[in-house]
Design a protein around this nucleic acid. Structure first.
Lengths: 136, 136
DNA sequence: CTATTAATAGTAATGATTACGATTCACTTC
DNA sequence: GAAGTGAATCGTAATCATTACTATTAATAG
């Protein structure tokens, strides 16, 4: 997912083009891993010192709902990254130091017969944690 | 893991036998799923209205470090359950309504060749979410 | 029984997130 | 391109879970 595609999606759902949204998308497009909501906010403050939490969280949540961003909870913080490939299910290795991710194309649900009679499966989470080469 | 075994472990590490710890262990031994730290606290207050957050969180953290409890983060809250079988690696299905869990003995790391050259793997998380038969 | 030191109570502080009324701004329509 | 309209934002307060800290209490060893 790149910034243009994100804007197509936003247009399609009649969201307006604002400076804050542009900044968020351009910032996350540059990064290749997860970034905490608060850190996105810190970045926004450079151009716009008065951004409010409301703006930061509302937009990140909206983007995640539209599958523009991927979202995860990492040690109590909400983290976001550009969606690598919306529509193609995948997982990630996540560096616990810098947040950088690596794609894991296969999914445990395809390999494991989860024998759970009667339960209604809604979703799953699979993440591998460690240190990327640069952070060791 | 049952309450007696938990006390053996605690004794071995010279932790004292206190009313609060007894209450926490007995409460979690009764439950068969994850319980939020705050809910454990609520329960403690029945017998001891003045328990402090310090006591709740410190003991839960200690128990998790000693592998008496298993710990996970679920929608922003820290959740705990008696360790099914310390020493035997496993995963869980977790009911998103009541927190009840079901054992998943197999591990994705055994089935998926995570091809990540140069990274140092430290851990992983695999959880399946859904509704248990009672909560549908 | 007494001493020692862990454990706890009580409460304040922190950190992330949510909420909301007032204001501003992007975009439609004329 | 000016005006109108509702979405988006600001500024700030509130909430919620968790952490931190000091004075006091209580579990265990000797």
């Amino acid at each position: 997912m790149n910034v243009e595609k994100a804007w197509e999606t936003l247009k399609k759902h009649s969201f307006k083009r604002t400076k804050n949204r542009e900044a968020i998308l351009e910032f996350l497009a540059e990064r290749d891993g997860y970034t905490a909501a608060m850190d996105v906010g810190e970045f926004l403050k450079k151009d716009n010192p008065g951004v409010s939490f409301d703006t930061i969280y509302r937009n990140l949540t909206t983007f995640a709902e539209l599958d523009i961003l991927e979202e995860t909870d990492l040690n109590g913080e909400r983290q976001y990254r550009m969606h690598c490939d919306p529509g193609v299910h995948h997982h990630h290795f996540i560096c616990t130091v810098c947040g950088k991710t690596k794609h894991i194309p296969s999914c445990p649900m395809d390999h494991i017969s989860v024998n759970l009679p009667g339960v209604e499966i809604q979703g799953h989470k699979f993440e591998v944690y460690g240190k990327c080469p640069q952070c060791q």
